[in-house]
Design a protein around this nucleic acid. Structure first.
Length: 255
DNA sequence: ATGGTAGATACTCTA
């Protein structure tokens, strides 16, 4: 069972790369973020031809999440229950093969102290409350997506440069730890302890070529799933292709 | 030196 997460930065602009990657990597499940596409325009037919069912929770221009699966979806939920009307599309959940999969696009935060920064911190507090009220850490729960936070120094190409900046500030790391402490382990770090393992590189200034990135895309799992975790890899290959997303897919394999 | 690129939308915002 292979479950992948990938911020595709527009599913319509990235359709050739996403379908090429699905052919090559053949995951059972792909969680996408920043689809930037309303549900009516989601390219479900193209994914269906490749053998994937899909569930989309999109909006125009910004945000948007979706899940592709080779097998049936159960209990699909869009957004958090306490979302206001017209809230941004940032969470979609579904049960696939007995695993509760929660796919999130955590807010970027823009800059320390900005209105969007406090929105991000509050969104993380609500995410923890969402797990408290809906699931148990003893169940098979997988939280994945673009978290927009690099948790540790080894997840940042230059910790001194990034200290106190967006994606790496202490309040963001604390808010993310609060979610994790509900009952998750970082599946990638179960299998990989090296530094310089990034999942995102800025489009600008040759960041990818120089490997100046951040590890902000994550797969977190509860204890029952940790027992079945075989590997987690970041696939940098599609970041080298023409017109790439600025993020690379992360693939978790389970027994 | 606060640069640089990319996507969606509509002549700018977000990341």
């Amino acid at each position: 069972m292979k479950i992948a997460t990938w911020n595709v930065n527009s599913v319509l602009a990235r359709l050739p790369q996403v379908t090429k990657w699905l052919d090559a990597a053949n995951p059972d499940v792909l969680c996408m973020q920043e689809t930037k596409c309303i549900d009516e325009k989601f390219p479900a037919d193209e994914f269906s031809r490749l053998g994937y069912r899909s569930e989309s929770f999109g909006q125009a221009a910004y945000n948007g999440v979706a899940i592709l699966s080779r097998t049936d979806f159960q209990h699909v939920h869009r957004g958090m229950p306490d979302d206001e009307d017209g809230a941004q599309s940032r969470l979609i959940a579904a049960t696939i093969d007995g695993i509760r999969i929660v796919n999130v696009y955590i807010p970027n935060g823009q800059a320390i102290g900005a209105e969007r920064y406090y929105f991000k911190l509050e969104w993380l507090r609500r995410l923890r409350a969402f797990f408290e009220s809906h699931y148990l850490p003893g169940e098979k729960v997988l939280l994945c997506g673009d978290f927009n936070v690099a948790p540790e120094d080894r997840d940042v190409h230059d910790p001194m440069l990034w200290r106190g900046r967006i994606h790496f500030s202490e309040p963001e790391k604390e808010a993310l730890t609060y979610v994790k402490d509900w009952g998750f382990v970082d599946a990638f770090r179960m299998h990989n302890s090296e530094e310089k393992q990034y999942s995102w590189w800025d489009y600008r200034a040759g960041a990818f070529r120089r490997n100046l990135g951040l590890r902000i895309d994550h797969v977190w799992i509860t204890e029952p799933l940790a027992k079945e975790s075989l590997s987690v890899v970041i696939d940098k290959e599609p970041r080298r292709w023409e017109k790439p997303s600025d993020h690379a897919p992360v693939i978790a394999e389970f027994k």
